[in-house]
Design a protein around this nucleic acid. Structure first.
Lengths: 86, 86
DNA sequence: GAGAATTTGTACGTATGTATG
DNA sequence: ACATACATACGTACAAATTCT
């Protein structure tokens, strides 16, 4: 029942930090159109569960995407994929 | 023996988040020349002790200054005031 | 409007890893 | 080898904003 798009688990033994791995996964999903402009992004809780990561790790990954201008967060609502670019 | 420049304690009851209060304090010290370009910034441990804050809170404050381009961090060495600007 | 549920924000604490001196 | 300093990652608790019932 796992949705496709979740077939890239993070690797706890890799050199790349877990938060970066997750950021990379999410960025790819955005750029590939799996996560479309306008709404969503799974909630922090969902991402924690799906990837087996702590809250802080998930937040750091998302914050990186915010810094890149790919998403924006709204307290009480969620994290949204930005309209933008090409 | 407290150095001047430490006379602005954070306020746990203020609306402004502690990490932002600390970032504001440090930014002021940089812009006023109390923290001069080239080297330094007290270590995270020092800032924790001087301001009575947790590590994560101190790091978030400093990360904000990094994003502003005011300082840069080097693992194993410390956090440095950037040469820069005006 | 009241209240519960959801979701992000802040803040704390702890442990271990990595880089530098 | 050792000490210092930043980096990563875990966990917990409560606050604030929004949404849904």
């Amino acid at each position: 029942m796992d949705a496709y798009g979740d077939l890239v688990p993070v690797d706890h033994d890799a050199e790349t930090p877990l938060w970066l791995q997750l950021a990379n996964i999410l960025r790819t999903q955005i750029q590939s159109g799996q996560l479309q402009p306008g709404r969503i992004m799974p909630s922090e809780t969902t991402l924690m569960q799906e990837h087996g990561l702590a809250r802080g790790t998930v937040r750091k990954a998302i914050d990186a995407l915010v810094d890149e201008g790919l998403v924006n967060k709204v307290q009480g609502r969620g994290t949204f994929v930005r309209a933008s670019s090409s």
